[in-house]
């Protein structure tokens, strides 16, 4: 394993039971430590399957996944301790307050007592939610829910954070707070794996990207370098050039 890599995938294949073609088809990928890595692709390209295998949620059909110094297949528990996941859904309990939700998630990572309370407070203040910490989640706006969803993923200070469309359906202010804080977390050493359909956001946020389609990585590198290589003006043009304009979800 390369000591500079946060995650390495080698010859990774996933064929779902009964499927005619692989969802992930022989992917080899290197995600540098301290990067904000954008895994981009159209619907059904294989992004979610790849990330699910990296998190240990599903087992690959073949190939190897290394997260930091741990093998996902063999040391799942160790991997889980150093990763954080922010799903696209608001994976929180709507009838619990923001504080109760975060307290539960903190406890699940073994955090407790004053240390946990302090962590929760700090994060709530950072994301502008300290005034509503004792209100139920179902009273929150879309932006507030996204922010609390993000806090739930970083409460235990993971080394690697997986983000699935973290800014979907939020207002400009909330998006700004989220992206600013992601930059800050990254600056402090956290590796961020990010998926999104918002190409402009990905271009601004990511230090590295890979575009995946039909279960294969079709390009990989620094966004600006890739845009130049393919003679396009921005990431969206590059994305369309490589994946085509044909609809994928009809």
């Amino acid at each position: 394993m390369d000591p500079n890599a946060a995650i390495e995938l080698k010859d990774l294949i996933k064929i779902y039971k009964g499927a005619a073609i692989p969802a992930v088809n022989n992917i080899t990928l290197h995600i540098p430590k301290g990067s904000i890595f954008g895994l981009l692709g159209p619907n059904g390209a294989g992004k979610t399957t790849t990330i699910s295998m990296m998190c240990g949620l599903i087992n690959p059909s073949s190939g190897q996944i290394q997260v930091e110094q741990f093998s996902v297949q063999k040391q799942k528990e160790e991997v889980k301790k150093i990763i954080g996941v922010v799903p696209q859904e608001i994976a929180l309990y709507p009838t619990l307050t923001a504080f109760e939700n975060l307290q539960y998630i903190g406890n699940m990572y073994g955090l407790k007592g004053d240390a946990l309370k302090q962590k929760i407070q700090n994060n709530l203040i950072t994301f502008g939610l300290d005034q509503v910490q004792h209100k139920k989640i179902d009273t929150f706006s879309g932006g507030m829910k996204r922010r609390i969803n993000l806090i739930a993923g970083i409460l235990h200070d993971p080394k690697i954070l997986f983000l699935d469309e973290p800014t979907v359906g939020v207002d400009v202010q909330s998006r700004n707070v989220i992206t600013e804080h992601l930059h800050l977390l990254n600056k402090n050493g956290m590796t961020i794996i990010y998926t999104s359909h918002l190409m402009e956001e990905a271009e601004n946020l990511c230090t590295d990207i890979a575009i995946i389609d039909h279960g294969k990585i079709i390009t990989q590198g620094k966004p600006k370098e890739l845009i130049q290589q393919h003679h396009t003006e921005n990431l969206e043009q590059l994305f369309l050039k490589l994946t085509g304009k044909k609809l994928r979800d009809h």
Partner: peptide, 18 residues
């Protein structure tokens, strides 16, 4: 449906405890 199950599965410890 809301992703909580997925989040729990990515947390350390046995799912049997949960």
């Amino acid at each position: 449906d809301d992703g909580s199950y997925l989040r729990i599965r990515t947390m350390p410890g046995s799912f049997i405890t949960v």
